[in-house]
Each structure stands twice: as structure tokens, then as C-alpha cells.
Amino acid sequence: MTSPLQRKLKISGPTVITANRLADGAVVWLANDGRWAETLTRANVVTTSEEALRLLDIAHGDEREAVGAYPAAVALAKDGTPQPATLREKIRSSGPTIAFQATA
């Protein structure tokens, strides 16, 4: 029987940990060196729930740098580079799909 205290995180493929940087809200990803990176390509990609939980613990323990950390599924390019797997994450990664100051 599973203890109610045991945390669960189910992932079904390559996953990264993402958050918003505290100082300016910019989108960041947890990198291999344990720091927050500004590009998804530098993110630490994990494939098991245990690894994802471990990274999430690191992220949640670092609320002075980044907030609201969560696991996000990614797709891997042929060279193994992570790409956003959903429209939401594409927009977070690349910015709004509309031009700024269109009324100028």
C-alpha cells in the first residue's frame, strides 16, 4: 500500500523542469549544472519519475532564483536537443506569437 506521504509524479517521456525567474518573471529551465538557464536547449532532460522528482526538489528549494517550478514534457530533436512539446511551452519558450506594438 502506498503511503499518503509518498509523492507521485508520472512522466511519460523526456521531461524538463521549468519555472519563472523571481527577479523578472522570465521563463527559465533547470540545467545540468543545477542552475537556471534562459534557453530550453540547455535544460537537463530526464526520463524517469524519480529523476524528475529529484530535480523538482532542487527547484522548489531554490525559490530565491525561480518560482512556480513544474515538470514539462519535451520532444527531442534528432541531435537530442529538447524542443517544447506543447503550444503553451512553445509560447513560453519563444514568446508571444503576435508582433508587439502592432498599433504603432
Binding site: 523571481l22 523578472d24 518573471g25 522570465a26 521563463v27 525559490e63 530565491r64 518560482v67 509560447i91 513560453r92
Partner: peptide, 24 residues
């Protein structure tokens, strides 16, 4: 770091500050 995010969130919201997709 004196305030946690949980403590701060309510304070910023009361001043109209949200955290959205890309920024505050």
C-alpha cells in the same frame, strides 16, 4: 529571501501584480 513565495504572492496580488507566462 526573507519572504517565501507563498508569503509574498498574496501581497503582490493585492497590488495588482500577477506572474504570467513570460513575466510579471
Amino acid at each position: 529571501g526573507e519572504l517565501t513565495e507563498e508569503e509574498f504572492k498574496m501581497l503582490r496580488l493585492m497590488n495588482g501584480v500577477y506572474l504570467q507566462l513570460h513575466a510579471y
